[in-house]
């Protein structure tokens, strides 16, 4: 299928079942809320090396935030619920509790609860205070600028991770411009995050490696410098740069919608193809076919 001068490859993105938690961070100002959000979502691009994937979902207006202050919504994904619970404790404890004026709340209505504030409370060394307000338990942990307020429990629910688009362009500049346009459009959506830097990843990976210890290695079929070197390159002549956008979402529908929005925004002059990454279909539970995205 061709839209304008861009070919949409008849393939699918292979996505996985994951677990997600939504963390709401508020602070005295939007700047401090964003600072904490950037910290908690740092080093969380891929479960392969970071144990979780995280990103900023949206900015929250004070009128819509739990404590009437500026807020940021963050989504954190992991491959299993137990691991995600650990990541929440580590990241909220080290990245949000440490940030001046912040408070941290559960942002999911459904799912299963894991204890987070109830474990972070020990930092209070016995001076922590719990309050149950309208059925929800909060912890007040004394810190040097006052108190850190955190929900006792955060909910975790099943989610979908690993939706993706591969943007194949004539050169790096054009490809990056298209990828940026795509992430800008996708960034306006809720229920999803793009976990890589500015939403774009250049080091797409394949499963396995010639080195036994490596579980993933460079996606050589899409590396332009390896055309003519590797057995099977996916790049035609004239494709000199490839960038990937990875999408994690609360639901399959949210991921599909984000991929559709991103794909449409990435269609620019100089973009030869838009494809998607998969592992042959045998690993991921969800196959998101590009031609069935409904554009």
């Amino acid at each position: 299928m061709k839209i304008k001068s861009t070919t949409i490859v008849d393939t699918f993105a292979e996505a996985f079942n994951m677990y997600v938690s939504r963390v709401i961070i508020t602070a005295d100002s939007k700047e401090w809320a964003i600072a904490a959000a950037q910290s908690i979502t740092g080093f969380a691009t891929s479960v392969i090396g970071c144990k979780c994937e995280a990103g900023i979902e949206t900015i929250i207006d004070p009128n819509d935030s739990p404590d009437l202050r500026p807020g940021v919504s963050v989504l954190i994904f992991a491959m299993d619920a137990e691991s995600l619970g650990k990541r929440l404790i580590e990241r909220i404890g080290q990245c949000v509790m440490t940030c001046p004026t912040t408070a941290c709340y559960n942002g999911l209505a459904g799912g299963s609860p894991v204890i987070v504030g109830g474990k972070l409370r020990y930092f209070g060394d016995g001076h922590q205070i719990s309050k149950v307000i309208d059925g929800l338990k909060l912890w007040r942990i004394p810190v040097m600028d006052g108190e850190f307020l955190v929900d006792d429990r955060f909910n975790i629910q099943e989610a979908v991770g690993g939706g993706n688009l591969l943007i194949l362009g004539k050169d790096q500049k054009v490809t990056l411009k298209a990828a940026s346009a795509a992430t800008k459009a996708m960034g306006k959506l809720t229920d999803i995050i793009l976990p890589f830097p500015n939403g774009v990843v250049r080091s797409g990976s394949k499963v396995g490696s010639k080195y036994k210890k490596m579980i993933a290695s460079t996606n050589d079929a899409y590396c332009p410098t390896l055309r003519g070197v590797v057995e099977k390159s996916e790049l035609d002549d004239g494709i000199n740069s490839v960038l990937e956008i990875v999408v994690d979402g609360l639901t399959l529908k949210a991921v599909e919608n984000a991929m559709r929005v991103g794909l449409m925004a990435a269609i620019k002059p100089g973009i030869k193809k838009i494809s998607a990454g998969n592992y042959g279909g045998g690993l991921g539970q969800h196959h998101i076919h590009l031609l069935k995205l409904g554009f």
């Binding site: 404590d67 009437l68 408070a103 309050k131 309208d134 108190e147």
Partner: peptide
Amino acid sequence: DYLPLFLRHYFKHLESLGLIISDSLI
């Protein structure tokens, strides 16, 4: 002297129960 953030949650709850809470208190 400090601004106890947790009180905002109580005040929001009380407003939902029909009590009038002034902005200055919040």
